[in-house]
């Protein structure tokens, strides 16, 4: 059974149609990379999956729950789906540890001590346990993004969404974040990653998609996608980016 199932998803911002009918499925444990030119609707689409944006037509079913306006459903889905943003969006007034334990304590209603033990494990996993008591403002971009990943993982999500997680980072820091994501992918997490890091796509993606102008124009295995694209639009995109 597929864990996410989107059917003919359409979305308008006022008069402007950002998504023009996207259909896709993703199986448990799959890693999906989404790429495409700026403004093609990549962010809008993955933000629809955890209801940060509302789609107007079509349907999205996440882990058997259909996304509707029902608050209970939305909260249930949000605690199954972790999200990592381009601009980190850590809470600046809380320490790294507090950032990570916030949701387990308040949303999952776990005890503080359990959550802290778990948070330290996660920090260990993303490689920065020594930063636990600093504030986000005192960390480098790469470290902040790794904290953001740990924060999302602390909810023990079944699915992780990444919206251009490395595009606000210096080249040296990109690697440290990608390494964490690769490790995560290998551990069997279901992931949707919007990125222009083609190396990452080649190495860990199960499938690669190309969005253009609100439509999904190509869906392929990484090898085929890069070496033997079906669509002219893909060729053009690859020639610009590589």
């Amino acid at each position: 059974m597929s864990i996410i199932e989107a059917k003919d998803v359409k979305k308008w911002f006022g008069d402007f149609q950002a998504l023009k009918g996207i259909s896709m499925e993703i199986q448990e444990g799959e890693v999906l990379v989404v790429c495409g030119p700026s403004g093609s609707g990549k962010s809008t689409f993955i933000r629809c999956i955890n209801r940060l944006e509302q789609h107007q037509e079509g349907s999205i079913i996440v882990d058997g729950i259909e996304l509707t306006n029902d608050i209970k459903n939305i909260e249930a889905i949000r605690s199954e789906v972790g999200m990592v943003f381009q601009s980190f969006n850590l809470f600046p007034h809380l320490t790294v540890l507090q950032n990570i334990t916030l949701a387990p304590i308040w949303v999952r209603k776990k005890s503080k001590s359990d959550s802290e033990v778990k948070a330290m494990e996660l920090l260990e996993r993303v490689g920065i346990p020594e930063q636990a008591h600093k504030f986000p403002g005192q960390l480098s971009g790469g470290q902040q993004q790794r904290v953001a990943i740990a924060r999302a993982l602390a909810m023990e999500p079944k699915i992780m969404l990444f919206d251009e997680p490395t595009s606000a980072l210096d080249p040296e820091m990109i690697k440290e974040v990608l390494d964490v994501m690769k490790e995560l992918a290998k551990s069997g997490m279901t992931m949707i990653v919007v990125t222009h890091e083609m190396g990452f796509a080649k190495e860990v993606a199960d499938r690669v998609m190309l969005f253009d102008d609100g439509l999904m124009v190509e869906e392929n295995t990484p090898n085929e996608f890069f070496d033997n694209p079906k669509n002219d639009r893909t060729k053009l995109f690859l020639s610009q980016i590589l």
Binding site: L52, R78, M83, S87, F91
Partner: peptide, 26 residues
């Protein structure tokens, strides 16, 4: 910033929690 609200939404916080833990303190 809007990102703070989105981050709080994305980890499943409800309105009361968002207001008292994220928005008001800042």
């Amino acid at each position: 910033p809007k990102g703070q609200f989105e981050a709080a939404d994305a980890i499943g916080m409800n309105t009361v929690q968002k207001t008292s833990l994220i928005v008001l303190p800042q």
